[in-house]
């Protein structure tokens, strides 16, 4: 049996380590390069970097309040869903013919599965000793191509969303929901008739004063459409507008359509 130094002592009835280590920071002066101790020298610098980031972070928070759309309404068929931006590239892939329909397993599981498995197993797939990116062109190349793909798909998803559904704002304004400018200039002094102000579901998209929010401005809709056409659109929807949003009797609908046709 090797002889150990005594490594336990007793305080009361409890065994504790006999070796008291002095609480002294070592000097790193003999280390190669300009090493410095983590505590407190480097931690102070890290905190300064963190403070700069925190200022930027708070400015973002104050200048862009976090968005909150209307309360979840499962019957709202006009709402175009969009996942959070960091899932967009996965979402966008499902829109291409090679990753949807019969091939949807490629989009949902095979491509992401292969990519993420390869990422997890990177240390074993790229097992050479070289660490410089240029000395391991396969790993570097695949990663760069994946990055280009991710950036492109994210851009394409956002671009497609803001082109097809400008009302939802896309994520172009840093994720905040900015109402798209109505096609026609809204007349702020315009006051609609009571048949309009009773229709809260219409006002959700077309505005309390028909000035247009997500849907178009209707303040002069009578110059383009007659009462029958308007009634038809209200009943059956048009473009992004879902059918059956109108609440009330057929008589009310007729009154509303006639009123709107009179706006010129």
């Amino acid at each position: 049996m090797a002889k150990h130094d005594k490594d336990a002592t007793f305080v009361g009835d409890s065994r504790i380590s006999a070796k008291r280590i002095p609480n002294i920071a070592p000097s790193y002066s003999e280390f190669p390069g300009k090493s410095e101790p983590f505590w407190p020298n480097f931690l102070l610098k890290e905190w300064m970097v963190a403070a700069v980031c925190l200022v930027g972070y708070l400015l973002l928070t104050v200048s862009h309040p976090s968005p909150l759309t209307d309360k979840a309404n499962p019957n709202d068929t006009s709402f175009v869903p969009l996942p959070d931006w960091y899932f967009l590239f996965l979402y966008q892939m499902l829109k291409y013919p090679w990753a949807s329909g019969d091939w949807v397993v490629f989009g949902t599981i095979i491509f992401p599965g292969v990519a993420f498995t390869a990422l997890v197993l990177a240390p074993w797939l790229d097992a050479g000793k070289d660490r410089r990116p240029k000395k391991r062109p396969v790993a570097t190349g695949i990663m760069l191509l994946s990055l280009i793909g991710i950036f492109y798909l994210t851009w394409a998803a956002n671009d497609e969303h803001s082109r097809l559904h400008p009302s939802n704002g896309g994520h172009s304004a840093g994720g905040a929901t900015a109402p798209a400018a109505p096609a026609e200039k809204a007349d702020s002094s315009f006051k609609p008739d009571a048949v309009w102000t009773a229709q809260t579901s219409c006002q959700g998209c077309h505005g309390v004063n028909m000035e247009g929010v997500a849907g178009p401005n209707l303040q002069k809709v009578g110059s383009k459409l007659d009462a029958n056409q308007i009634a038809d659109i209200i009943k059956n929807g048009k473009g992004g507008m879902p059918p059956g949003m109108f609440q009330g009797s057929d008589d009310d609908l007729k009154k509303l359509a006639e009123y709107m046709a009179s706006l010129k």
Binding site: V11, A25, S35, P37, F38
Partner: peptide, 21 residues
């Protein structure tokens, strides 16, 4: 420290060199 021997733990957290690179 006499009771819990905290110095090794504290030195382990605080004592590592940060290399130049």
């Amino acid at each position: 420290d006499e009771r819990l021997n905290i110095t090794p733990m504290w030195r382990d957290l605080a004592d590592h060199e940060v290399p130049e690179h």
